[in-house]
């Protein structure tokens, strides 16, 4: 009897557990921007910046995008990762790019994107954007929506050039270009 009760309890837990999992993962799709903000949070956590940045207590997260994008990223503003506070900066104009440690670009004309990447190519700025085209334009991390899920593409060449290190925890679930 006791065994049966335990089994039932286990079953109940499983159902609730599944229900929660289903609630998060399958039933309700999440806004793409919110998910991208959460993934960006992981990158902030699992990326190592050069020593100059490492001494800072703040990581500047610059976001180029409209109000829904800014709003989604506001959810990770102020989060503490590896002893540093994430500070969201709305890049409504593409000036002072050098203050960024992370630069997330939602949408830019390809010609402007090329110039942005050109301007910060030697600085320790982790650049993130949309699609493989973002990597073609010199970006580091590109997110692609496929079958309603997000796929990650990482180009290690600009990452190394900027003296950044992305943890293998992230790289093992990404499509990596320019690896050893």
């Amino acid at each position: 009897m006791r065994f049966l009760r335990a089994k039932r309890r286990f079953g109940l837990c499983l159902v609730i557990g599944l229900a929660i999992a289903v609630d998060v993962i399958a039933v309700e799709p999440v806004d793409e921007e919110i998910l991208l903000a959460a993934i960006t949070h992981k990158f902030a956590e699992f990326t190592t910046w050069p020593e100059s940045v490492d001494k800072q207590t703040q990581l500047n997260l610059c976001v180029v995008g409209d109000n829904p994008v800014q709003q989604a990223f506001a959810s990770i503003n102020g989060a503490v990762v590896e002893g540093k506070t994430l500070k969201l900066i709305n890049m409504s104009r593409l000036t002072n790019l050098e203050i960024c440690q992370i630069l997330f670009i939602d949408e830019l004309k390809p010609s402007v994107l090329l110039q942005v990447v050109e301007q910060i190519k030697d600085l320790p700025v982790l650049t993130m954007g949309k699609g493989q085209a973002f990597l073609d334009g010199g970006g580091m991390v590109g997110f692609e929506k496929k079958d309603d899920k997000i796929q990650m593409h990482v180009d290690l060449r600009p990452v190394e050039k900027a003296r950044l290190k992305i943890s293998s925890l992230l790289l093992k679930v990404a499509n990596v270009r320019g690896g050893p």
């Binding site: 998060v24 993962i25 399958a26 799709p29 999440v30 806004d31 793409e32 921007e33 919110i34 998910l35 903000a37 959460a38 993934i39 949070h41 992981k42 989604a72 959810s75 990770i76 929506k145 309603d148 899920k149 997000i150 796929q151 990650m152 925890l169 992230l170 679930v173």
Partner: peptide, 21 residues
């Protein structure tokens, strides 16, 4: 609410979440 849900997930789990735009 959505952010709270997803922020606690692992990277693998995040990449399995269905998204909408």
């Amino acid at each position: 609410a959505d952010s709270e849900k997803v922020l606690n997930l692992s990277v693998e789990e995040l990449l399995n979440v269905k998204v909408t735009s």
